[in-house]
Nucleic acid binder design. Structure first.
Lengths: 221, 221
DNA sequence: TCCAATCTTTAGATTTCCTTAAGGATTGAT
DNA sequence: ATCAATCCTTAAGGAAATCTAAAGATTGGA
């Protein structure tokens, strides 16, 4: 879940829309007080934070948040605010984006920050509930039992475990995993997903992989 | 413990703060003399070292340190200092980062260096199950019987035994072992693996080397 | 130089698994 | 409740990766 704290309604809505199109759940806040409240009381994966906010500045919000959590934060700064990296880090932010921003860049930055701050980038072992994946040996386990998976199944699971809860369209999955271009009526990923589910089902009743009708699939509890 | 030697107090504190947020213990020094002292007299796992320092340059510090220890070191260089890899190695550093740096990059580099320098076990003998490899004499044993291996076979086995369970692609293997660039669809490693297996099979039914279809090979029980 | 050991290439047989296609089930909109 | 769109599963064909033996090339030592 990504929390967008931004008082300009147009920008806020735009960000939320684009993010949810990219498969993220979002929450929004329109002033510093509300933002701080939500940041402290809801469990979110990343905060997108404007610096110039009513009631409480972004800087104040971030300082408060940092006292109790290390939720990654990306700061949005107006184009005439010069922010250098040192300043930024003093604030406790993980990255910043100047307005006016390119929406694709926002997505990229968000994904970069999430990648960096998650155990992903280098952690040799990723876990999600009882599922564990060892990147070195390319093995997958449920609790302590190995689930034998094919190469494609492994790649799909790795992608899911590195981005839990994120929705991947079939196109997305296919292209991430094979590197090839996706043909529109392709049913391949269906089958892989089905096979993965079948293998997981031997060990548990939990589904782990949700279908998001019309959108794709998501690793979820 | 990571020792930060950097005369700019802001940067030094920033680095220490971020490192300790990432779970590392830190120590700091603000000039070359102090840095050298701490490097020699405290047990640290890694040194972050600015080149331009008062009292003693980073280069001098590193040279002194290298006389008595191989503690990994990452050099911080001002943006206008051009440092090439050769120069870097002459200094005895393990990596370098140009200022102004991205703090996340620093963390990543530190982790990469620690990972690289950790596992290079200097142990002259490595074992995996009943397989034993003597790096000094370059010989391989199964229990107490010697398996005569060729040079290439030895290198492959050494790589495997240093990284048990890790999957190596053919490209990986080929490039690690020969140093040459790998041409796709090269079948050489297949054959070596096959020959190694044949030799091991004389002593046991265990396979030791798994094929991971589409990915590579892995030393495994 | 010559030989023997080692490495690389080749090629056919074998294994693995990715994709396709088809029929049935589910979902969400009207 | 109905219907179209989407999704699930199964099974089989064929593509791709691998294995092995054997022949060809290379290397290093005598």
């Amino acid at each position: 879940m990504i929390l967008v704290i931004e008082d300009d309604k147009t920008i806020n809505n735009l960000l939320c829309k684009v993010l949810s199109d990219s498969g993220y759940e979002t929450d929004c806040a329109f002033d510093g007080e509300e933002g701080l409240n939500k940041a402290l009381n809801t469990k979110c994966d990343l905060i997108l934070l404007d610096l110039m906010l009513p009631l409480k500045t972004g800087e104040e919000v971030l300082r408060e948040v940092r006292k109790v959590s290390s939720t990654p934060a990306i700061v949005l700064s107006a184009k005439d605010q010069v922010i250098n990296r040192i300043e930024l880090l003093r604030l406790g932010a993980d990255d910043y984006i100047s307005k006016p921003f390119d929406i694709d860049e926002v997505i990229l930055r968000i994904e970069a920050v999430l990648r960096r701050t998650k155990n992903t980038s280098d952690a040799p072992v990723i876990e999600f509930m009882d599922l564990r994946l060892d990147k070195e040996s390319k093995r997958v386990f449920f609790k302590n039992e190995e689930i034998t998976v094919t190469g494609m199944e492994y790649s799909i699971l790795e992608l899911f475990l590195e981005n839990p809860n994120k929705v991947f369209s079939k196109r997305n999955l296919f292209e991430s995993v094979t590197g090839d271009a996706y043909m529109s009526d392709d049913n391949t990923m269906n089958v892989h997903i089905s096979n993965i589910r079948k293998k997981i089902a031997k060990y548990t009743d939990e589904s782990y992989i949700d279908t998001v009708y019309g959108m794709g699939y998501r690793l979820s509890k």
